[in-house]
Design a protein around this nucleic acid. Structure first.
Lengths: 140, 140
DNA sequence: TCGCTTATTGCAAAAATTAGCAGGAACGAT
DNA sequence: ATCGTTCCTGCTAATTTTTGCAATAAGCGA
């Protein structure tokens, strides 16, 4: 997956922001992550494309993408912040063994509806991290 | 609310850790927050009690409490990390106006049950932040 | 295509967070 | 109550992240 697969350029542009080679390189670097990647990995990948790109640009651009909603960031509890191209999905993280498991968005929908009903609040969160104990770690 | 209201001392102790004046001062400082507080505020409050307490101790101790499950930390999307004494509850944060609203834990339970059924994963998360649009900010 | 405007970048310096380590204190055992 | 072990703390240094600013380049209009 690269930035060509979806029209990210238009999204950035239509939101009134400039499409720069640095932003594209960083976006590609996030995509190359295939799942979650860290800032350091993103920086390394972006450097391959553009030797002169600065770390502060990566910090700024990642924050920018998260605000735009193009990228999601998540604290999976292991001291690293992970970045990923946004598509509605969620994760289960086992407190015991640390295993990370992706789960579907659909499972959240009834809960979101209830929040909407009871609190008159339209939830738009598309990435949650639920901590707990996985089957393997639970005594049975 | 102070650390005397619940038997936090026993919890720390029973988990095999030492109960130090610094930890109690920091725990009280979190409690005094009445809702969410930032690390800076916690540091300031703890300093009132113990002039010599170091910032690095606050960082370490907060991380320690979070791991112990006594305190929860949350990124509410405004660039600050908030800390709060742990009790199962959740927040709605409006993307538009930034308003923060506390919601009940009960609303999550059916979803947690479904995750448990479908993925055989026992969820123990007790603090989620849901982003969306509140009633006031939604065109009607 | 060529300028013009202004968002964005790289660099350097500041601020925030973490790590290493020696001294001091908690707390179990005597 | 005192001792001894070992965890915690404060200090300092290292590392990570953010900020300020001048130079550059994206993208609009002519």
């Amino acid at each position: 997956m690269s930035h060509y697969d979806l029209d990210y350029v238009s999204i950035i542009h239509n939101a009134g922001h400039r499409v720069t080679p640095q932003r594209l390189a960083i976006l590609d670097a996030v995509c190359e992550g295939e799942g979650h990647t860290t800032l350091g990995e993103i920086y390394a990948r972006a450097r391959v494309v553009d030797q002169s790109i600065d770390r502060s640009t990566v910090y700024r651009t990642l924050k920018f993408f998260v605000e735009l909603g193009l990228v999601v960031s998540a604290d999976m509890g292991d001291g690293e912040i992970y970045y990923e191209i946004a598509k509605p999905h969620h994760h289960l993280v086992c407190r015991q063994c640390g295993k990370k498991q992706e789960i579907d968005h659909a499972i959240m929908e009834p809960m979101f509806d209830k929040v909407s009903q009871e609190y008159d609040f339209k939830v738009e969160t598309n990435h949650l991290v639920l901590f707990g104990i996985c089957a393997d770690c639970r005594p049975h």
